[in-house]
Amino acid sequence: MTAESSASPGGFEMAPGAAMFRSVDALSSLAAPVPPKAPGRGLHRFANPGRFLRLAGALQPWLTAGGLILTAAGLVWGLVFAPADWQQGDAVRIMYVHVPAAWLASAGYLALAVCSVLSLVWRHPLADLAAAEIGPVGAAFTGICLATGSLWGKPMWGAWWVWDARLTSVLVLFFLYLGHIALIRAFDDPTRGYRAGAILALVGVVNLPIIKFSVDWWNTLHQPATISLTGAPSMYLGMLWPLALTALGYTLVFAALVTARTRAAVMERRIRALLMAAAAREDGAVQVAA
């Protein structure tokens, strides 16, 4: 017991059946129509905030360290050791940051969509919090993708920006992220925000195949995909390895950021619930005294 509680963040931990916290937590989301299910069944096993905090807390150092090490290795490899391209010269090194950021922008949106389904269909309380925290991180990576793409496009294409289908659809993805960030926080009742945000996120999923296939469906200035599932990557292997490293590292960094933010969000929700419960107790005491 002591080992377990000292391992949990902040030195507190939540027993699976801590009914007191559960009832308090329900105060913060009065509109939630489905009462919390018994723990230990399917997806809702991870709805228990105490269990989530323990699991995420244990996972966090691995995600963070792995992400930092792989990203650093990949970036140094790409910046210093990878060969320059025969026609693009050293500007091709921007690929090692641009492409992983682009992948993460789409993958992050997919994660947002999965959370939104969990939220809308299964009313999963952690999915709501995770969706709210994925949004800003995904927007940041989309912003990196757009900015580094611009920095790559100017010296190679000769333009910072063009309105071709690939660039425009990624810009739409960026705005979808921004809209989600704003919408999910726009309501006084957080549950309504979660619903609205989830619906926006799911409608936006239609943009993901458009981004992916824009370079095949329409003629664009952006080149088509180098790496496909079916054929050999049309890239020299000495360039592919650093790209794979940064892509994996960036994925772990993304996961680490979302995990850390979601842990904080779970704790913040509990703080709000505790404060409301304390306020309610005080009110009750005043009424009894009167």
């Binding site: 970036l75 910046l79 010269g89 050293d90 500007a91 090194r93 921007i94 940051v97 641009h98 950021a101 940041a140 990576f141 912003g143 990196i144 900015a147 580094t148 920095l151 790559w152 100017k154 010296p155 960036y250 960094v253 950021l257």
Partner: peptide, 16 residues
């Protein structure tokens, strides 16, 4: 193209 590369890497490191 050093300025472009440096700017891109700086963004990609500093924002995360």
């Amino acid at each position: 193209h050093l300025p472009y590369i440096v700017a891109a890497y700086a963004l990609a490191v500093l924002v995360p």
